[in-house]
């Protein structure tokens, strides 16, 4: 009787173990994927990325938002189209990132009462209506400017509440993904991976994971789509993964290890 009980227990534990992780065999395989060739590929990509360093001079033409930023100002504050059109690409990015409502309203709705709002969709909708963002992605040098900024964030471990999250979600946005070519997506993936796996990481990686997810999805990375894509659902803080019946996650912070492993596998296949 006792042996039978233990047998049942072992079977149940194995069942739980199999169900809780998308693909254990694959994860183990991915963990062992850092071959010399792969590291050389990453170094090669990083060399390209490093060429974007300090693209932007000190920005002088970004919008200087009134302080304190109040609802009354927000109601009437408009950046004229001529100003947007004449602004440098670096100025456009700074104007987007320094908006005082980042952190309050964006990238996630921090006053919203429903934890299961489609946060990614809402952000993409907002960006489509954002004239500054639209203009930014019209510029020929938008990628080098974005890459340069991201490089600065990674290298200097720069973090501004609301702003950094918004920037990463800008990189993960449909608008950005629709503009990047595959090489640029790979470079973006390398940067995101570097940030997510940084040893001194002390901040959240939710938005960093969204960049990796966006790249893998926009590159139609079948393995990821098959294993993880179907488990993604939108919450008020972006994608979350349904891997537990008992716990509801907001965002990908809790699943960063899984996303990182698929991102490595993705890059490995792009070598």
């Amino acid at each position: 009787m006792k042996k039978f009980f233990y047998l049942i227990l072992v079977v149940q534990l194995l069942t739980i173990a199999c169900n809780n992780t998308p693909n254990d065999d694959l994860i183990d395989d991915l963990t062992n994927n850092s071959s010399d060739a792969f590291e050389a590929f990453i170094e090669q990509q990083e060399a390209i990325i490093n060429s974007y360093e300090n693209i932007c001079p000190p920005v002088t033409d970004a919008i200087d938002y009134p302080e304190p930023w109040t609802v009354d100002i927000a109601k009437t504050f408009v950046i004229p189209d001529e100003t947007i059109n004449s602004m440098s690409t670096c100025g456009l990015l700074a104007t987007l990132l320094e908006h005082p409502e980042n952190g309050m309203f964006r990238p996630w709705c921090t006053y919203c009462s429903n934890s299961e709002l489609p946060g990614v969709t809402m952000l993409n909708d907002e960006l489509r209506e954002n004239k500054v963002a639209v203009e930014l992605f019209k510029r020929d040098d938008y990628f080098s400017v974005l890459a340069s900024k991201y490089l600065t964030i990674i290298e200097k471990k720069e973090y501004y509440y609301g702003q950094t999250e918004y920037f990463e979600m800008l990189l993960a946005s449909d608008m950005c993904m629709s503009m990047l070519n595959e090489n640029e997506k790979i470079q973006l993936m390398v940067m995101a991976l570097k940030k997510a796996t940084s040893k001194s990481e002390s901040i959240g990686v939710n938005e960093t994971c969204h960049i990796m997810v966006a790249v893998m999805q926009s590159c139609n990375y079948i393995l990821f789509k098959k294993d993880v894509g179907t488990k993604l659902r939108e919450t008020s803080m972006g994608y979350s993964m349904d891997i537990s019946d008992d716990i509801m996650y907001l965002g990908l912070n809790s699943h960063s290890d899984i996303i990182v492993k698929y991102a490595k596998k993705f890059l490995n296949e792009k070598m």
Binding site: Y159, S202, I203, G204, V205, N206, Y249, N253
Partner: peptide, 16 residues
């Protein structure tokens, strides 16, 4: 930003 570098503020929002 300074505070962020001093300690973890990794919001992990989980509900059951």
């Amino acid at each position: 930003a300074v505070y962020m570098l001093l300690g973890s503020v990794n919001v992990i929002a989980q509900y059951q």
